[in-house]
Design a protein around this nucleic acid. Sequence first.
DNA 1: ATTCTAGTTTATAATTATTCTAAACTAGTA
DNA 2: TACTAGTTTAGAATAATTATAAACTAGAAT
Lengths: 137, 137
Amino acid sequence: MHQKKEIINKLRSSNLRPTKQRILIAKKLFDKKETFHFTAETLNKVVNRKGQTKISLATIYNTVEAFKKAGHIREILTNNSKSYYDTNIKSHHHFYDPETKKLTDIDYQEVILKKIPNPPKGKKIKDLEVVISLQKK
Amino acid sequence: MHQKKEIINKLRSSNLRPTKQRILIAKKLFDKKETFHFTAETLNKVVNRKGQTKISLATIYNTVEAFKKAGHIREILTNNSKSYYDTNIKSHHHFYDPETKKLTDIDYQEVILKKIPNPPKGKKIKDLEVVISLQKK
DNA sequence: ATTCTAGTTTATAATTATTCTAAACTAGTA
DNA sequence: TACTAGTTTAGAATAATTATAAACTAGAAT
């Protein structure tokens, strides 16, 4: 799917030097069929599975921040103490289960808004996110 | 508006012993005309303004947690590293300005949803929150 | 009223997530 | 091949929050 070349282009196009660490992290993030929800901690685990080349935690954080700024990943709203990120950068929504702390994507078309308020003066809407918290039935 | 008696009843009704600390914090939180958005830090400042009896930060955290569990306050979704709380416990929505990190209430009626997805099996919807992030025009 | 006890408060230590620092390293140009 | 700006790294620093355990107190029992 995502060959090394594509990944390198993606990095270059956002002014990120394609280092071996960034390429490896990008592979792990974007070489998935499905949307990937992660925290710095989980990404660190995935990237540094036994035997693989070691990438420092600082680089994990740096890269996540760089990818976020470049718009390759998005930060998700939760009321958890960790930051959650999503490889799905299309505007979409989430179910959040406070029990398991798991997020699930809700496709954009699954939520239709009939009315939204005007933003305050001097501001425009950057993003609109719906979070549906769940509980046991 | 909220006399001491009412506050004491509110505390008792949720099995919280009405201590002098809890009463004072409750006054600061609920004795307002408007909705109050706060973090542990801001609440600590409000409660411990010069001259007032000192309430420890640990108690601020304990009390916020207790009030949240009791349903007297709600935690708000943001992607900020601090936890934000709201004395408005009615279902409602927010504008979030990442620049100033300020939240503004959006009245419930200002957002109308035409379609929302079914929750996953075994789960029901606990809460639905819309967050509209802002940026400079 | 006095005593008792479980619940609460407190200062402080510990923990967790994240950011900073500054030295070592490397991609890519000259 | 050498250079330089960008990047990585280990580890220290910081920020927010939670845990600990000793002292205190509300309110029931005596």
